[in-house]
C-alpha cells in the first residue's frame, strides 16, 4: 500500500481526500483440472473438459454445473472459434487485455460447446458481428496462465496488432515442473475521504494543534474525533484542544526488523493517552533507552520544524519522557 499526501480540495471546509492504490498478488493453487488447462496453455494448446451431458466446457469446469459430478475427461479444442455475442468497450480499463478500444466477446472455440469470455482486438465496432470467426493471439512466451491468450483477432483480417504486452508475472513453477500455482496481481485505485471530524483534526494538526471532540452522550473525548462515538452511535461534536503531553498506557519494544522499517531496533511503540483525552493513540517513544519505558510514564510530543507541518500526525516525530513522576496505575487503568 502507498498513500499520496492529502490534498486540500477547493473549499476549506470540505473533507480532506487523497488517492490510495491498494495492490496484492493473489496466489492460487490450480488443482488437477485448471492445472491441465494452464499447463496446456503454456504449450499453446487449449483444453476443455467433457460434462455429464457430453458438452465440452472451455474453460474447463471442475464439476458439472448440472450434476455436480467431478469432471476428468479432457478434450483438445481449436484456438479459433465463433463469436456468439459481443459488446464494445470504448474506454479500456487498467489491466484489461487490450489497451485500445476492443470488444468483449463470448467465443465458442471449434470443438467446444460453451463459450470463453475474452477480448477481441478488432479496431472498431463496425468490424464486429455475431457469428464472425476469430483466432487466438498468443503471448510471445506463454507461462501457464489465462493471459497467455493475449486476445483474439478476426480470423479473416490481419489487423495491425498492438505491440504484444510483456508476459505477465503470473505463474510459478520449479524448473521443468508443471505449473501448480497462478499469480494474479490485483490493484485498485481508491479516492479515500477523511470524515468531517477527522478532517478538522488533520487541519488542526497542520497548525500544530491537537484537536479532540467530546461525545455529547457519554462525555468521552476522542482524538482523532469520530463520525460516531463507538459507544453511543452519535457524532462527536464539542471541540476540545488537547495538550501535547500525556502518559504511556501500554507499549511494546520492537526488536524485529521488517521491510520499510525507519528506526533501528530496539525501539518502543506505545499507546499515548494525552492529558484530557479518553482514548490513546499509537506513537513512538524515543529519547530514552527502550528498557526505561514503563506504563504511566509521563511524555511530551517532539514536533518537526514548523515549516514541515502538514495535515498529518507525523508532524510529531515521537514522544519523549518529561521527567515528571509517573502517573499512578489507578489513574489510567480504565483506559487499558
Amino acid at each position: 500500500m502507498s498513500a499520496a499526501g492529502t490534498e486540500a480540495p477547493e473549499t476549506p471546509e470540505a473533507p480532506l481526500s487523497a488517492p490510495l492504490e491498494v495492490g496484492f498478488d493473489y496466489t492460487r493453487s490450480v488443482g488437477p483440472v485448471l492445472g491441465e488447462f494452464v499447463n496446456a496453455l503454456r504449450e499453446r494448446r487449449i483444453l476443455g473438459v467433457r460434462g455429464s451431458d457430453g458438452r465440452v466446457h472451455v474453460p474447463p469446469v471442475e464439476y458439472d454445473p448440472g450434476t455436480a459430478r467431478a469432471l476428468t475427461e479432457f478434450v483438445a479444442v481449436a484456438d479459433e472459434g465463433t463469436v456468439l455475442s459481443w459488446s464494445w468497450n470504448a474506454e479500456p480499463l487498467d489491466g484489461q487485455p487490450v489497451t485500445r478500444p476492443f470488444a468483449w466477446a463470448l467465443i465458442r472455440l471449434d470443438g467446444a460447446d460453451t463459450a470463453l469470455l475474452h477480448a477481441v482486438d478488432a479496431g472498431s465496432p463496425s468490424a464486429m458481428r455475431t457469428g464472425m470467426r476469430v483466432r487466438a493471439r498468443w503471448a510471445d512466451e506463454p507461462v501457464g496462465h489465462i493471459r497467455d491468450l493475449v486476445s483474439f483477432v478476426p480470423a479473416d483480417a490481419s489487423p495491425e496488432p498492438e505491440p504484444a504486452p510483456p508476459s505477465p508475472p503470473v505463474a510459478e513453477r520449479g524448473e521443468g515442473e508443471p505449473v501448480s500455482t497462478v499469480i494474479t496481481p490485483i490493484t485498485l485505485r481508491i479516492q479515500h475521504s477523511a470524515s468531517p471530524e477527522e478532517s478538522r483534526y488533520l487541519r488542526a494538526l497542520a497548525e500544530g494543534r491537537l484537536l479532540g471532540q467530546r461525545c455529547p452522550v457519554c462525555g468521552k473525548v476522542y482524538i482523532p474525533p469520530r463520525g460516531a462515538c463507538p459507544v453511543d452511535g452519535v457524532p462527536t461534536e464539542e471541540e476540545v484542544d488537547l495538550p501535547d503531553t500525556g502518559i504511556v498506557t501500554t507499549f511494546c519494544i520492537v526488536n524485529v526488523p521488517f521491510l520499510g522499517q525507519r528506526i533501528k531496533p530496539p525501539y518502543v511503540a506505545a499507546y499515548v493517552l494525552l492529558d484530557g483525552a479518553d482514548i490513546a493513540f499509537l506513537h513512538l517513544v524515543l529519547g530514552c533507552a527502550a528498557e526505561e519505558v514503563r506504563m504511566g510514564l509521563r511524555v511530551r510530543a517532539v514536533w518537526r520544524p514548523r515549516e514541515e507541518w502538514s495535515t498529518t500526525l507525523e508532524n510529531i516525530t515521537h514522544f519523549e519522557p518529561t521527567g515528571e513522576p509517573d502517573a499512578p496505575y489507578e489513574s489510567f487503568a480504565h483506559h487499558l
Binding site: R28, L84, S85, L93, G95, Q96, W104, L106, L117, T184
Partner: peptide, 22 residues
C-alpha cells in the same frame, strides 16, 4: 471467477452488454 475470468478484468458493463445482445 478468479482463475480464468477476473485476470482479464471484464467490466460489469461489458458483461451486461454481452447478455443484452444475446
Amino acid at each position: 471467477d478468479p482463475y480464468v475470468t477476473a485476470p482479464l478484468w471484464p467490466d460489469s458493463i461489458g458483461i451486461a452488454g454481452l447478455q443484452a445482445r444475446l
